[in-house]
């Protein structure tokens, strides 16, 4: 692995080695002294061309716990608004001798584009509606803690599948690991050709939850929808919102994931989000360990 551009571009054994490394780092971050010197003298630029709080902080903590030197850049305070191209912005930063780039960008394929033009190693922290590989890795790492293995595991992804990079990366990762995937959401937000990826498709939340061992409830990202794909959040919530009543009716220990930030009362009610079955905060903790593992393995591969 030279870059992490997407789950699509890595193998099952890459994913397993990330998990094994993350196991070790999870131990590290639960010690009183949370820092290791692995990435000393490595400079990492976090380039966020799109708003992010948790992913940016998670990466920054992971980098700092590996003793890397870190610079942060966000689009709001940048030259992007002055019309500079992505390539110019990144080349300017690389001219200051940066080894690795962690980037979030609104355009699908921005990282693949960049990898054709620059030498630094690139980690994709989300590219538009394409991939969000570290989110999928931390989701799967969290499932691995719960279930041990993936063979035969049934995972449902519910929400706006069309505009979700989390969904796409999770589909690729879960399938590489041997899990079964079903997507569920309003028909207007499920790509017509999604079946070609080998996933099941359903428009029925209850049926999907009865089928699943675990469910990843996606956030409805109104900012990524250029037109209205459903009439109102109220109606979305009536059809695809997960509440206590549905959960109790299932009579099983469904594991609930959410990539955050949660729209409480839209895709998931507070009662469910704060329940024993939700592993949302485990995901956040695992995010740091998984990102440490990715950074560590990429630095070693250089």
């Amino acid at each position: 692995m030279r870059h992490l551009l997407g789950i699509k571009y890595i193998s099952e054994s890459d994913i397993h080695s990330i998990f094994q490394t993350a196991d070790n780092f999870k131990d590290v971050i639960n010690r009183p002294i949370k820092k290791v010197p692995s990435l000393r003298d490595t400079t990492i630029a976090n380039l966020f061309f799109e708003n992010s709080t948790r992913t940016r902080i998670s990466f920054e903590l992971a980098e700092k716990r590996l003793s890397a030197d870190v610079v942060n850049f966000s689009a709001s305070s940048s030259s992007v608004k002055k019309g500079e191209t992505l390539l110019d912005t990144v080349n300017n930063i690389l001219a200051m001798k940066v080894d690795m780039v962690v980037m979030r960008h609104p355009n699908p394929g921005a990282h693949v584009f960049l990898s054709k033009h620059i030498d630094a190693q690139i980690i994709n922290a989300g590219d538009g509606t394409h991939e969000h590989p570290t989110q999928a890795l931390l989701d799967c790492f969290s499932l691995r803690e719960k279930f041990g293995e993936f063979k035969g595991l049934k995972v449902a992804i519910v929400g706006d599948i069309t505009h979700s990079r989390v969904a796409l990366s999770n589909i690729f990762a879960l399938q590489k690991l041997g899990a079964k995937v079903r997507v569920c959401g309003p028909p207007t937000l499920i790509p017509k050709h999604i079946g070609s990826l080998g996933v099941e498709v359903s428009y029925d939340l209850k049926d999907t939850l009865r089928w699943a061992d675990a469910v990843n409830m996606l956030r409805i990202q109104l900012e990524r929808q250029d037109i209205a794909y459903f009439p109102s959040l109220r109606e979305y919530s009536q059809l695809y919102g997960l509440d206590k009543e549905i959960l109790d009716s299932l009579k099983k220990d469904l594991v609930i994931l959410h990539p955050g930030p949660i729209n409480r009362g839209v895709e998931i009610t507070s009662e469910v989000a704060d329940s024993e079955q939700a592993i949302i905060l485990d995901q956040v903790e695992n995010g740091v360990a998984v990102r440490m593992a990715v950074l560590y393995l990429l630095a070693g591969a250089k």
Binding site: P108, G109, T129, H130, E131, L168, P191, H193, S196, D226
Partner: peptide, 20 residues
């Protein structure tokens, strides 16, 4: 409107908005 490529299995994989 807004489509980047053909709507197909490939547009799903690339996360690009497809034109049907």
């Amino acid at each position: 409107h807004g489509g980047q490529m053909n709507e197909s299995a490939q547009s799903v994989k690339l996360g690009l908005k497809g034109i049907a």
